[in-house]
Design a protein around this nucleic acid. Structure first.
Lengths: 249, 249
DNA sequence: CATTTCTCTTGATCTAGGTCAATGAAATTA
DNA sequence: TAATTTCATTGACCTAGATCAAGAGAAATG
């Protein structure tokens, strides 16, 4: 519905571009960060036709939910998402936050259905890479597979170091590590490493880091007292990144 | 050195088998659990030649260490391994335990060097899948790549639910979840789901679960008091798996 | 634009599990 | 097989961070 609305003009646009030997992905602002990087021109044309662009989601809207049929991988185009999983008795863990150029759904590739919930934190959009036939796509685009393997591996490595955070770090170290990680990711995306907006709630941050909301508040207040950050609601400014890095443990 | 010692006769063996259109992997006891599953006959012959078999490691010996050049993925053939990562100031997190048929090193695929340390918990052996040219291997064996993608995705999903454990579960739930997870893995490997040996130390378990050794001891003692388990040093017997599953939260 | 509902902050109190200490049991080494 | 070292268990005590409570902003909703 909202999907086909936004998609129709793009398919036309896509056809036009192809005549001119242009490729939509090449024109995308995320090109440098996204999947196509490293693909050859021919591959890119194929990829370009596979991808469903610019599906929009508003704040709190689900991209997918645990047990939904696995149909596609998603790349964030704009905005941000969180993913969560739950215990049978209802406790929930925020397993990650996702920003433009990052993949959502990689943990479901082998499965008939998604393994987590993905929810928009603000008005956001994604590109969908349909995966009804992984085998076929893979044989057609081996380099795409290598890209996926790389992405998956990188996320795995990230999750391993997140285990170190959850298992071994103090509240202050956890929050410092989290802020530095956000800062780096924003910088990679061409935004300020110093000033950014926390699109997720304090509750989401707390949950993700294995802490209580109150602890997040207290530590942020403490960091502000130390002159490490200036906080204004959801906006944060890192005043001494070096010192903050030293606090990561 | 010890590697080529054990390898030489196997290469001869390999050549012999190939003349008879046999493939070493097919004869392996782990065949059902391991990588080749889903590969076609032709692929299997190629894979078979790539794999370096039966490298042996003794207790506490490193398979690799953080920053070693990434050269191969490993599949456990026998025994068991743990992987760890560390903070700059020396705190260590056990990020996983690996049993026969499981992959080690998947988090390093995109990297020039390994991202963690892998250490044998007992006398163990592995098959190595050299990865000096992922691109080339991938184009030659697209189905192998799909297998890898699947493995990686599965490990990622496992790590996400481990985050739930680390972030949201109590000491009892953590240990119950861990024991049930081991039980399932042993069962998948054709061993008893009820009686098995904890090849890792209490310290390793505690570290992995984000707890203190003393807590592991206390909870195990409590579980034994409840008649849920019988413990004899490193041997454990799950006396009521259903009840234990209910404790996982 | 008023109201209801979330979200954030701060303070007071509590507790799960950590730390410290001592002892015993295994395993390793000599 | 004794000696040394490492590993596991148990008890006593302590603390980081959770929980509870209350109020103040924001922001969604009618």
């Amino acid at each position: 519905m909202s999907q086909s609305d936004t998609l129709t003009p793009l398919i036309v646009d896509l056809a036009k571009r192809e005549k001119k030997h242009q490729v939509v992905c090449e024109a995308c602002a995320l090109y440098r960060l996204c999947l196509p990087l490293g693909l050859h021109r021919d591959d890119l044309v194929v990829l370009d036709q596979l991808v469903k662009r610019r599906q929009s989601y508003k704040r709190k809207q689900d991209l997918f939910t645990t047990n939904d049929t696995f149909s596609a991988l998603y790349v964030v185009r704009s905005g941000s998402f969180k993913t969560t999983i739950s215990t049978s008795n209802g406790r929930e863990q925020v397993t990650g936050f996702y920003f433009p150029g990052e993949f959502i759904g990689l943990d479901a590739i082998h499965m008939p259905s998604y393994q987590s919930n993905a929810i928009a934190l603000e008005s956001s959009s994604v590109c969908a890479l349909p995966f009804d036939n992984l085998q076929q796509v893979g044989e057609r685009l081996p380099r795409l597979q290598i890209q996926l393997l790389t992405r998956l591996s990188r996320e795995l490595a990230g999750d391993k170091s997140f285990m170190l955070l959850l298992g071994k770090k103090t509240a202050e170290e956890k929050l410092a590590t989290y802020l530095i990680s956000l800062s780096k990711r924003f910088q990679d995306r061409g935004f300020s490493a110093q000033d950014f907006r926390l699109t997720m709630s304090r509750n989401d941050i707390a949950n993700h880091l294995g802490l209580a909301v109150e602890t997040i508040s207290r530590v942020l207040t403490k960091f502000q007292g130390l002159g490490l950050v200036v906080i204004n609601g959801k906006d944060i400014s890192l005043k001494d990144i070096t010192k903050m890095e030293a606090l990561c443990g």
